[in-house]
Design a protein around this nucleic acid. Sequence first.
DNA 1: AGACGCTTGTGAACGTGTGCACAAAGTTGC
DNA 2: GCAACTTTGTGCACACGTTCACAAGCGTCT
Lengths: 224, 224
Amino acid sequence: MPEATVARLPLYLRALTTLAERGVATVSSEELAASAGVNSAKLRKDLSYLGSYGTRGVGYEVDFLRHQITREIGLTQDWAVVIVGIGNLGHALANYGGFASRGFRIAALVDADLSRVGEEVAGLKVRHADELEQIVQDLGIAIGVVATPARAAQLVCDRLVAAGVTSILNFAPAIVQVPEGVDLRKVDLSTELQILAYHEQRKNGAALALTAEQAAELAEAVNG
Amino acid sequence: MPEATVARLPLYLRALTTLAERGVATVSSEELAASAGVNSAKLRKDLSYLGSYGTRGVGYEVDFLRHQITREIGLTQDWAVVIVGIGNLGHALANYGGFASRGFRIAALVDADLSRVGEEVAGLKVRHADELEQIVQDLGIAIGVVATPARAAQLVCDRLVAAGVTSILNFAPAIVQVPEGVDLRKVDLSTELQILAYHEQRKNGAALALTAEQAAELAEAVNG
DNA sequence: AGACGCTTGTGAACGTGTGCACAAAGTTGC
DNA sequence: GCAACTTTGTGCACACGTTCACAAGCGTCT
Ligand SMILES: NC(=O)c1ccc[n+]([C@@H]2O[C@H](COP(=O)([O-])OP(=O)(O)OC[C@H]3O[C@@H](n4cnc5c(N)ncnc54)[C@H](O)[C@@H]3O)[C@@H](O)[C@H]2O)c1
Ligand SMILES: NC(=O)c1ccc[n+]([C@@H]2O[C@H](COP(=O)([O-])OP(=O)(O)OC[C@H]3O[C@@H](n4cnc5c(N)ncnc54)[C@H](O)[C@@H]3O)[C@@H](O)[C@H]2O)c1
């Protein structure tokens, strides 16, 4: 299955869940594509990787398709997650209710700062970073979330990997190396804003260019 | 400039900043690529879109290249940002110091909940959503960050656009439509986790498949 | 039952992105 | 001033992703 398709399955899943809540029983690729904000041909091709679950002339059965995607992504089981670094962001993540409803359970919170250890956040006691290996093994944790400062990110990832974690979501703005077999994804807010700024500048730049062109025309008019 | 290149420029910028702080004056494409975690040919092709700023046989001058990328992204000016939805995540974002150092200034905080309005967060008073248009125009805000619940996201984006915002970063897990000319990027943590879960499952699935194969072999051995 | 209309699933064309490999261009050492 | 060495910038081939367009298949209505 293409990586681009995998990245869109959660999108479809969310759209299907919304439809199911509204009591919709079947949906065409055109409608579902509109809900998910993608091209309908792309949607059909994506879904075709799961199998032929549609009915020609009718569409897709919402509940059935939802189940198939859930199974494909691997959300039939709950995944235990550890969050490392319980600062600003770590607190927000720990308190966020949206993970549980999507198949993820925050199983442990870890920080290196002794003044933070023992604090109760979202019903969990913050534990010390040195206990990481024990925690990961005891709770069967496969996914780690890194919300420490950038300078600690590589060390924390190394420890997570050593403890047996094979999937990491990194929020720290740092380039981290992990051994093969370990999946690393990053969420980088500053980068996102910078990409927006680039396009924003070009929008304004286009306006400036137009002005320059107008200026040239003006100059020509005056000189001609 | 290719979109993929634009998305990597912030990465290079960060790597260059780190090098500059370490006092490195020049860097080869090989070294810089390693710092940024990309292929060196890709890095050189990306940089070639900015112009021919390298010196053959030597490499790139760190400070100069940093300045060129900063200019290209449009970070020579500071961008004013408004955050809408000052809950868990909004607080974390408002308190985050990493934006200011990268050319973004949190200029205003907005919420619809009257019990939140007036609260002081990160040195700013939370203002009411109805004032949005006024705020955006007075402060010359071009970028909006949406950290409201999903159900409010479309409404908030519509209001932001109506107020004159032309770039939006959305944290709510919702598909949002914006008119042409407005850039919308989304950060979706659940999706990221789900992508990790998919690969995680396949890792385990590979192990299970092996077991199944072994089982088949065993059955064959018993029957044969 | 058969014709009609609708929607899926997919072949094929196209566009974008990646990475190799090397000529061109610079530096360093003698 | 020249040869040897280093590193950039880029042409080219390939891989990946997207979109069009349509035959095949299903349900419905007469
Ligand atoms: N807060 C945000 O909204 C935001 C936005 C974008 C990016 N980030 C990034 O997310 C990360 C966390 O941000 P934050 O605002 O929560 O920072 P923070 O300073 O509030 O929290 C960091 C936490 O990590 C802990 N920590 C430090 N070293 C550790 C280690 N080796 N092991 C375990 N824990 C350790 C600290 O004790 C602290 O509690 C940073 O890298 C930041 O750049 C945050
Ligand atoms: N907290 C997290 O770590 C986290 C993680 C992933 C995604 N998210 C998403 O980010 C968003 C915010 O999450 P949160 O945990 O901060 O939620 P929250 O409920 O704590 O905060 C939401 C805030 O938005 C305000 N709001 C609601 N409607 C509004 C409107 N129309 N205009 C202006 N403000 C409005 C509310 O008053 C509240 O203060 C949610 O969509 C959530 O799914 C949060």
